[in-house]
């Protein structure tokens, strides 16, 4: 499993760092051996099974929306709340510059610590979050800014108030709303994208998926629990759900896949930002020549034809 390999890699790297200073030949030889071992381990990270990708997609150290926003955009100006009822902190939204151009950014947030995760509700938005996203995207439409959304959620929040405030309506409205936008919309799946909670921010012209990100109708645990009444069969579920970036590309949901550093994005976030930057720039560029009406039509057609019968 990738988990064990990553733990060994961590230890190896610490060891390698501690030996480096020495000039003794024996230590030099030991260093060589350790480095070879590390390369072998990394090579084993090339082919990951779907359950391993789910593990990486959820890794606590994996770069999250806030990290990408800080790395890829300048002049970021955050916008708060739906201006109706609340500010859902599980959604980050605002305006920033991408390669000089003003864009609107909306993303689902997960944290790197327990405290952050509690603050962001583990990336699970309430209706107020989707309404906040719509409010911010509406301005993008008004000011003709491209929209970039980051998807990273185990699903919409299944809570009592969320239901009372119309979770279903908020998700439906968000999808209907995004379908009529006439500015370029690009979605990037950076971690886990589950259920309507993810789809609500994915009605885009282009969907980019990170190599180890996953996108599915439900979490593998939920899937196993519904289908077999046994959540512990989640690894088996991963195998048949077809939730990897490659599967999604084949299903024509994802348009592009971004390479990850060996062993996952968390091993080298800086490199990950560079990899994503290249693909994002290219995808935005590909939408540049399209008229407002053509942008809407392009997005509509994408979703109209998925799973075409």
């Amino acid at each position: 499993m990738i988990r064990e390999r990553l733990e060994v890699l961590d230890k190896l790297e610490k060891k390698i760092a501690s030996i480096r200073e020495s000039k003794s030949l024996r230590k030099q030889e030991r260093l060589m051996n350790l480095k070879t071992f590390k390369q072998d381990l990394l090579a084993e990270c090339k082919e990951l099974n779907p359950a391993e990708k789910v593990y990486l997609a959820r890794h606590l150290d994996r770069p999250r929306t806030d990290d990408y926003v800080a790395a890829l955009f300048t002049d970021f100006f955050p916008q708060r709340g739906d201006h109706l009822y609340d500010n859902d902190k599980s959604i980050l939204g605002g305006i920033g510059r991408y390669h000089g151009q003003a864009v609107t950014i909306v993303g689902q947030r997960k944290g790197h610590t327990a405290k952050e995760n509690v603050e962001f509700n583990f990336g699970m938005a309430c209706p107020e979050g989707y309404r906040k996203a719509m409010r911010i995207m509406e301005q993008a439409e008004k000011f003709r800014r491209p929209i970039i959304t980051f998807v990273d959620t185990p699903g919409a929040y299944p809570g009592k108030e969320a239901e009372e405030h119309g979770q279903g309506e908020a998700i439906a409205r968000s999808m209907a709303f995004m379908s009529k936008l006439t500015v370029p919309v690009v979605t990037i799946v950076i971690g886990e994208g589950n259920s309507g909670g993810a789809l609500a921010l994915s009605v885009a012209n282009r969907i980019i998926m990170l190599e180890n990100s996953v996108y599915s109708v439900l979490s593998p645990e939920g899937f196993a629990s519904i289908l077999w009444k046994d959540a512990s069969r989640h690894e088996e579920a991963c195998e048949i759900m077809k939730l990897t970036a490659e599967d999604l590309k084949e299903a024509k949901v994802a348009d592009a896949i971004v390479e990850e550093p060996l062993g996952g994005a968390q091993r080298n976030p800086k490199l990950q930002f560079e990899y994503l930057d290249k693909v994002l720039e290219k995808e935005l560029e590909s939408l540049k020549g399209l008229s407002p009406a053509a942008l809407r039509e392009d997005r509509f057609k994408k979703f109209r034809s998925i799973g075409g019968l």
Partner: peptide, 16 residues
């Protein structure tokens, strides 16, 4: 469930 992601995508299609 048996149609996985294709089931999910119907939400966007019908809403649009």
């Amino acid at each position: 469930m048996q149609e996985g992601i294709f089931s999910l995508m119907q939400m966007a299609k019908t809403s649009a």
